[in-house]
């Protein structure tokens, strides 16, 4: 065999051996003891690092759960499924996770409904737009429509529609709340998945001002707090905006149908409630 070849094989082989022994020694000597449970828990987590659990990320959450600092049901995107799996890994009884939530968009004033004060040509970010005279939308409270929430969503559950409003894909939304923290106007909110109806306006302006700038905003007609139509008053008035006290109340169907701006948005199953309330509504109309 060519001596050049031989010497290089010996030299490189020798080097490899020395490093191999060194690394093997270092691996033993400086080994960090990891709880195997952490790895297992990390496997069952969604891995979005959304921070909804209050921890900096999924691995921090896994460590905290394994160490017993945090209960296993705190992973909001994972929900009940993940909570059960983590409980199995830890060998504890599964705890019921909180009711899953979804994000809702509390503004219906898109490009067609709401007026603009000026033409905004800056960078596409709601926070940046807010620096320029408080945003281009005439409404001081409404959605700016530049999609910071859509960009922030770790689950790709928010998209901007042609009307310049965010739309939440409820199948993808895990209720982590990143969009709620991102939105500078507080347009997004988390509601329990079963909640049938929510109010889609956050404007505290007086009725006249709202009417002049947005056709989809609440202009404080107060029909939804009128005891004549809703005798058990599931809605109260706070400032210039109604607040839903009991979204599950059957009379909410009346509010939904009576609201002239259609500010109450029905999501999910309302039929049962509607059928239950129908006779009452007719009665009240006859009386009225």
């Amino acid at each position: 065999m060519d001596p050049t070849l031989l010497s290089s094989i010996i030299a490189l082989g020798g080097l490899g051996l020395i490093f191999g022994v060194g690394l093997a020694y270092a691996a033993q000597k400086f080994a960090v003891k990891v709880d195997p449970k952490v790895e297992q828990i990390l496997q069952v987590l969604p891995g979005a690092n959304c921070g909804a659990c209050g921890q900096p990320g999924c691995s921090a959450f896994a460590e905290a759960v394994a160490a017993g600092r945090v209960p296993p049901n705190k992973c909001i995107p994972g929900g009940q499924d993940t909570a059960t799996k983590i409980a199995a890994i830890l060998g504890v009884t599964a705890v019921d996770s909180e009711e899953p939530k979804v994000a809702v968009v509390q503004c219906r004033g898109g490009k067609q409904e709401a007026k603009e004060r000026f033409i905004y040509q800056g960078i596409e970010d709601c926070h940046a737009a807010l620096l320029l005279a408080g945003g281009s939308k005439a409404c001081r409270y409404g959605c700016l429509g530049l999609g910071s929430c859509a960009k922030a969503c770790p689950f790709d559950a928010i998209h901007m529609n042609d009307n310049g409003l965010p739309v939440v894909d409820e199948d993808k939304c895990t209720g982590c709340g990143v969009c709620v923290l991102t939105c500078p106007r507080g347009i997004l909110a988390l509601v329990p998945k079963s909640q049938p109806v929510f109010l889609a306006c956050v404007s505290q302006d007086k009725g006249k001002e709202v009417k002049s700038i947005c056709s989809a905003g609440c202009f404080t007609c107060k029909i939804c707090v009128n005891p004549k139509f809703l005798p058990s008053e599931p809605i109260e008035m706070i400032g210039n905006l109604p607040k839903i006290k009991d979204p599950y109340h059957p009379e909410m169907a009346v509010a939904v149908s009576k609201c002239p701006s259609k500010c109450f948005v029905v999501r999910g199953k309302m039929e049962a409630v509607e059928s239950a309330v129908q006779p009452d509504e007719e009665q009240s109309q006859q009386e009225g």
Binding site: I123, A128, L131, L132
Partner: peptide
């Protein structure tokens, strides 16, 4: 590039 607008936004953050 809207450098000034980006920087103003960054400063506010």
């Amino acid at each position: 590039i809207d450098l000034l607008h980006l920087i103003r936004y960054g400063k506010s953050e």
